[in-house]
């Protein structure tokens, strides 16, 4: 059945010029929002520390996402030029 095959292979959409899976994207947005705002709110309330905690939270979210989400790119290395 070609339709089932299509679903298995063509499941990614393009956002901002690269491919993402909707499920992973939602997860990434949630994780980064929570870590960023979480960092901001647990920080001691004396500027600029909330901002630094927030920034660190954003970076932490980025690292977590990079570990649990696989990029949607295949790399193939060739000896010959195309």
């Amino acid at each position: 059945m070609p339709s089932a095959k299509d679903e298995t292979f063509k499941k990614y959409i393009e956002v901002w010029e690269d491919l993402v899976s909707i499920k992973d994207l939602v997860m990434a947005l949630l994780i980064c929002s929570i870590t960023t705002l979480g960092g901001y709110f647990i920080a001691p309330d004396e500027p600029p520390r909330p901002l630094f905690f927030g920034l660190f939270g954003a970076f932490l979210g980025f690292v977590i996402c990079s570990i649990i989400i696989k990029p949607k790119r295949n790399l193939s290395e060739t000896d010959a030029e195309e």
């Binding site: 690269d18 997860m27 990434a28 947005l29 980064c32 927030g54 980025f62 989400i69 696989k70 949607k72």
Partner: peptide, 19 residues
């Protein structure tokens, strides 16, 4: 290309915008 998913980049900037 192999390790940095596009979702993580989008998440990072989304988080910064919220903040």
């Amino acid at each position: 290309f192999k390790r940095v998913p596009h979702e993580a980049m989008l998440g990072l900037f989304f988080g910064l915008v919220l903040l």
